[in-house]
Amino acid sequence: MNSQPNFLREPHDPKDPSPWRALYLDQSLPLAEECKRAWLEDVSSRSRQFLLPLVRPIARLTIVALQILKIVIPKRFTSSALLHRLLEWNMRTWLSPNANLLIFRHFHLGSEILDFIARNTRGVTVTTNPLKPRRLTEVRDHLYLKHDINLFNFVIALNEQLRERGLELAPIDELDFSGITDGPLPIEPMPARWSNFIDLQTAIELYTPFYQLLLTDNDFWRASNSLQLDETIGLYVARLLGTAWTPALINNRHPLVPLSTMQAGFRLVLHGLATEMQHALLVQYKRAQLQVLTARSS
């Protein structure tokens, strides 16, 4: 994999400016450098330009066909173990290194955000189940399914205790950022063979029908509905930070209104970016708090 993406290596042409270079240089949104480079290189690839428009309509038609099929034989083909073995093989064989990196980053960052909320919600004790895979073989351990289950279990456990004790999420004087990683994540290098060319968005569209086929209806609908908890988690973080603007980073909204699974692939991309921006924001706050504490002690 090249050390720099094409849009950074090629000289700037004022008569034909690169949109990817502009988005990379823009700093209006909080986003880790590693994520921004990987994401923009991935979305500027030929795979996304030419393959995604072909894959997306076929994948969505397949979702409709499978939904009809599962009315007749609802649990005949379900197997989470088979699904995750297929996902691991496809990630190893076909996905670009950037796509795999972004997927693994998502598991790490999502776990760290839930940990931050648990650490800083006073008066409750919520045990988290962090998912921080380092290598592709860990996908086989029902990684994707556990990610969705963890999120719902966390929301249930947190709010049961808040309701029972008459408490609310609120800012505190000194937040605990010890679970937020400021720097590289412990993820092993991903395969970079000739066949590893499929971008993240195309891969998500391809995988969604397999999700629907090999998961039970409950698991598939839960996975789809979990995307709308972005707003919920964003509000939790905003209340702990004492700010009102962080939910503006989120596009998956209104968790009380379930959406069609037809757009699950696109919404999953928004979910990934929301997680990246929420985590980058927490890193900014962590650095700012560290500077204040250092100034006090000096």
Rank of each mutant, 00 (worst) to 15 (best):
G183D: 10
R105D: 01
I63V: 09
P17Q: 07
P11G: 10
E276R: 00
Q201H: 13
R119I: 01
A32V: 06
L83D: 14
E205C: 05
V257N: 03
N129R: 11
L52V: 05
P74C: 02
E138Q: 15
P130L: 02
L54A: 05
E276T: 04
R46I: 00
L185R: 09
N129S: 09
F116V: 07
L102P: 03
A59C: 14
D217L: 08
A274Y: 02
W20L: 14
E88Y: 03
P11W: 07
S111T: 02
A118K: 07
T216G: 09
V257R: 09
Y24Q: 07
S28K: 11
L167K: 13
I180F: 08
L227D: 11
Q291N: 03
N150F: 13
P184M: 02
T125M: 02
W89I: 06
F220W: 11
L86A: 12
A170P: 12
R222S: 14
Q263C: 05
F104E: 01
R193C: 00
K36G: 03
H106E: 04
A32I: 06
H254C: 00
I58A: 13
G234R: 13
V43H: 06
I68G: 05
W20N: 10
R9S: 13
N129A: 13
R296D: 14
A81D: 15
Q161F: 14
G242E: 04
P57Q: 09
